[in-house]
Design a binder for these strands. Sequence first.
DNA 1: GTATAATGTAATATATAGATTACATTATTG
DNA 2: CAATAATGTAATCTATATATTACATTATAC
Lengths: 72, 72
Amino acid sequence: MKNQLKIARISVDLTQQQLADKVGVTRQTVSLIEKGKYNPTLKLCLQICYAVNKTLDELFWLEKEEWENAKN
Amino acid sequence: MKNQLKIARISVDLTQQQLADKVGVTRQTVSLIEKGKYNPTLKLCLQICYAVNKTLDELFWLEKEEWENAKN
DNA sequence: GTATAATGTAATATATAGATTACATTATTG
DNA sequence: CAATAATGTAATCTATATATTACATTATAC
């Protein structure tokens, strides 16, 4: 599932590992979320938002059509 | 985890069962999410947003402080 | 160009989201 | 107030988010 995490993370100058540490998750999890291969929980989404100083909509919002195309 | 789902669902005149059907989940899952006793996945959050015509921030956003208080 | 940091990704294990079944409680409507 | 619809919630099961370990590839710095 597509998202804006990678660009947001880089803009606050964090590596995947640093972000992972901040939100208490493994680097792999961050990597997979950025790649759109994961369906994170709301809690994790919120923690990521706080860490990179963005809102849910800014990082994770998808219009319904994009959603329906991106079947995965 | 607190959220605005119940009020949004009622405002589009759906029962928990109807919402559950629309998003392809059980009524129990909807109930628990409304009660703040569940940590839904991003996909489910998005589908709920589409069903009640709200955004992620409108339904699920929590400021960091509220978050930190609401430990669960 | 080589060392090192950062990232991608695969296999297996564990924790937990969500389903299922069931029953109780709380609205709502006649 | 009685019947029914809507909702709360508990126990058990299944699917999947996330951890762990490990190794490969890609970027960055010397």
